[in-house]
């Protein structure tokens, strides 16, 4: 049937953008349009500093979005990242707090800071390993597994902080990384780190075997296995990668606020998921890009920032966000359907 049309003389090929490129551009266009609309409605919105804020205010969730996007592309969820943020932050504080505190919450293990964060990171990776174990080895759906480990991670954080926070008896070095300004500007080290992560992730996704294997697995897991891809191994790496990012984010946030707070990162896993979906990552896997996810985050950030500038009540902020998410997703679906008609 279609072999007939296939053998017809080919039309002159114009260089056609990939679907991913198309969606990423679309999401970027939506983000920029929203920014311009907000600039019309909100006084003083249209300025460079505000653009910078959109990124710097959201470095944590964008960083988490990288790991979550890779996993989504491979066809797996990671809802544990918010819990890991809390856990690694709390662990880093607990490990670093000096051993002689006035009460239980101000007494820690007294490890040197470097060792403390290394151990905290190890804790985060353990959660990632648990995710991989249950998803890969026991074949339990990832959404269930990571929902469970999300509670495990946060639960441990709450046990360590007695359900509250640890913020005393910390060494001087503890606040350094989270508050380090680079290049003599107000841009902080965590933001720069997120930028580096983003660039590396884009390179890995586009140019590297590791990235393409992620897409192959997401596009057709069975074909991937039959093509000689070790799926279990790769998904394990992705969960460790995602948990590692979440661990670093948790450590940096703890450092920035000099506290280990068991409720930190609450609902961040859902924000990370939402920005990835907003950015065009397919919930069924095999499709999406980190650039799209980044602009997805910017869409949400523009709305939040504009609502703050207008001093909107919490209810209206919520409604505004819901409308923006809805519009962005509808636009995307519609545009992709039209393009592929």
């Amino acid at each position: 049937m279609s072999s007939v049309t296939d053998t017809l003389p080919t039309r002159p090929t114009r260089s056609k953008m990939s679907d991913e490129g198309f969606i990423s551009s679309l999401v970027a266009a939506v983000a920029i349009s929203l920014f311009l609309i907000a600039s019309l409605l909100v006084p003083n919105f249209f300025q460079w500093q505000n653009v910078v804020n959109l990124v710097t205010n959201n470095w944590a969730v964008i960083a988490l979005g990288v790991g979550v996007s890779f996993l989504l592309v491979s066809g797996n969820f990671d809802l544990s990242v918010g819990g890991i943020v809390a856990l690694s932050g709390v662990l880093s504080v607990w490990f670093a707090q000096s051993t002689e505190g006035a009460n239980a919450l101000s007494t820690g293990l007294g490890l040197p800071y470097g060792l403390a964060i290394a151990c905290a990171l190890l804790g985060a990776l353990t959660i990632g390993a648990l995710n991989a174990l249950f998803v890969v080895r026991f074949g339990i759906p990832s959404i269930i597994v990571t929902l469970g480990t999300m509670m495990v991670a946060r639960g441990i954080a709450q046990v360590i902080t007695h359900g509250s926070q640890r913020n005393t008896n910390l060494p001087e070095a503890f606040g350094y990384l989270g508050n380090l300004s680079l290049f003599g500007t107000s841009i902080k080290f965590p933001v720069v780190l997120m930028g580096v992560l983003l660039v590396v992730a884009i390179f890995v996704e586009r140019k590297m075997v590791f990235g393409r294997i992620t897409y192959w697995i997401g596009a057709n897991p069975e074909a991937a296995t039959l093509s000689g891809i070790d799926r279990a191994r790769h998904i394990t790496k992705l969960y460790l990668f995602s948990a590692g990012i979440a661990g670093v984010v948790g450590i940096l946030l703890a450092s920035e606020y000099k506290s280990g707070f068991s409720n930190r990162g609450l609902l961040m896993e859902f924000d990370a998921l939402v920005i990835a979906l907003l950015g065009g990552v397919a919930i069924a896997g095999g499709f999406g890009s980190v650039i799209g996810m980044f602009f997805g985050a910017i869409i949400l950030a523009v709305v939040t920032s504009a609502a703050t500038g207008l001093v909107l009540s919490p209810d209206w902020q919520f409604i505004l966000k819901a409308v923006a998410v809805f519009l962005a997703i509808v636009t995307q679906t519609w545009a992709l359907a039209r393009r592929n008609k």
Binding site: A219, E222, L226, S227, G228
Partner: peptide, 20 residues
């Protein structure tokens, strides 16, 4: 379609997978 090909990907993206 379910075992051999990555149907959502292009020819270029399908060819190299078995010998990276």
């Amino acid at each position: 379609r379910t075992q051999g090909l990555f149907t959502s990907l292009t020819i270029r993206e399908n060819v190299p997978v078995m010998n990276l």
